[in-house]
Amino acid sequence: MKKLLRLAVLCLALAGLGWHTTSAQLAMVEGGIYSKANAPIPGLTVSLVHPVVGRSSPCMTNAQGWYVFHNVPARPEPYYFEVYWGTRLLYRNTYLVQGPRVLLPKIVL
């Protein structure tokens, strides 16, 4: 009986550990945004939105038009990727975030 109890506790602990490791998977998402003249666009507000996880903290493109999100929870469903000029929506598309590093395709506006 004691052996069974110990086994059950061990199984529960392993299951908990497994759940913890899968739920803690975070990805780095990055990419660049350029004009039609192929010039990087700085200062654009970039955001990732997910129906379950919610909206990311807004990130702004740097002088090279580059943006980086550091801790994006990996999800089986795609994220909505939005680009704003101030508060004006310029771009929206869906992308899957899986794996430790995700490089989104070059966006030309």
Binding site: N71, Y80, R92
Partner: peptide, 18 residues
């Protein structure tokens, strides 16, 4: 601009991750 099939929180919503 791809239309959203679900209701998305506004840009002003507090960020949950980064």
């Amino acid at each position: 601009i791809k239309p959203a099939t679900v209701s998305l929180p506004p840009l002003s919503a507090p960020g949950g991750f980064n």
